[in-house]
Every structure is written in C-alpha cells, then in structure tokens.
Nucleic acid binder design. Structure first.
Lengths: 91, 91
DNA sequence: TTGACAGGCAAGCCACCACTTGCCTATTGT
DNA sequence: ACAATAGGCAAGTGGTGGCTTGCCTGTCAA
C-alpha cells in the first residue's frame, strides 16, 4: 500500500487516472509525457500499474487489445485512518 | 511526505508515537524493540525521525539532554485528499 | 493475410536508501 | 570533577526498486 505510493511516478499515474479514469496503457504513457513531462517507457508504466493494482489502488479490465485502468481510492482512505486519533478512542 | 511513509520502520515509529506521544529518542528505541520486535540502532531511529520531521509528520522539542517527539497527522490528512473526488468537484 | 498497433515477459543496470560503525558533544547526577 | 546518560555527525555498505533494452504474443484493420 504505502510502498505503492512511495514512487512519485506512481503518484502521477494516479493523478492521471483521477483526471481521466479508464485509460489504456498506451494512452497513459502519452498523457504522462505530454502533461507531466514524465518520460517513461511503456514497460515502466506497465510495471507501475502492476504495483498499483497489487496494492488495490487500481483495477484493470482487458478488452480486446486494450487494457483499461481504473483508480480505486478505497484502500487509501482505509490506510489513512491508521494514525487517526478518532478511530482509536479507547485511550 | 509519501516518501517519509515509504519505510515500514518509519510507519512503526509513527505507530509508537501515536500510542504514546512525546517520547524521547532512547525511549522510542527501547519500545520499538520490545513491542514491535524492531531491532534498530539508535542512529537509525534518529535518521528516521529526521525524515519524519522534514515531512512535517513529527515535531520535536529539545529539553536538557532529552529530545521529545510528537506526532502530527496534519500533513497526512492534507495529502490524502489528493485523489479524493469530492475535493475536485469541478469535473 | 499481413502489417501496424497494444501489451507482456525476462534479464540487466544503476542509484538511492535503510542501516551500521566509529567517534564526538552536551547535560545530568553524585 | 567525572562518569554515565542522551543525542549528533559522518562515512561506508548492501539490497532493492525504478527504469531500460530486447524480444515475443495477441488483436484489429486493409
């Protein structure tokens, strides 16, 4: 989870998916380069997406020759409560 | 910020501070070893605290020969809104 | 059917980071 | 005063994660 967010590139990928959800790999690469000046190989982005998906932050659906990616902030909100006082009131 | 949370050891340190706030360095080392089985050098913990403090997640006050550390979840809540849909409603 | 497009697999390189070791300073108690 | 305690500084090491390169598979359009 946190390890998935440790990389700035992955955070940018999440930014991009938050901005326009359901992008394919190819599309992501293009937009990352255009809008964020991030010059990454397709493989690099693909590996990042694997990590994000393993962390549950991204879900992907394969359709034909495309693979669409969707952001999921669920695990995020969950993990952020870790040091939240209000969730540990028995103290 | 996120880089500060990238390390599991640092997350444990935050856990410890959340459990008992205002600990000194040596106290943290002791409790981390006892309760979490984390065998770290004092220097290691010190360096982690530096990182956490640079990220604004921990504040420290030097008193005599002690340096007390306090957790601050402020930047945390801030950063978590990054991919939160409700904060970017103009879409 | 064949070429272009979208994606996957595997191995290798490199820099950074977590952690240690060794030594030094400052504060406290007796 | 001086020994013990609490902490700091700096340099070194090992592992791993981010990224690349090279090649292979699958899908669509003409």
């Amino acid at each position: 989870m946190f390890d998935a967010l440790a990389s700035g590139s992955r955070r940018l990928i999440l930014d991009e998916l938050a901005d326009r959800n359901g992008q394919a790999l190819y599309e992501l690469c293009a937009r990352l380069t255009m809008k964020h000046g991030l010059n990454l190989t397709r493989q690099a982005v693909s590996q990042h997406l694997d990590v994000l998906e393993a962390a549950g932050l991204v879900r992907s659906v394969r359709e034909g020759r495309y693979k669409f990616h969707y952001i999921d902030t669920g695990p995020l909100e969950e993990a952020m409560r870790r040091w939240d006082k209000t969730t540990r009131e028995g103290e």
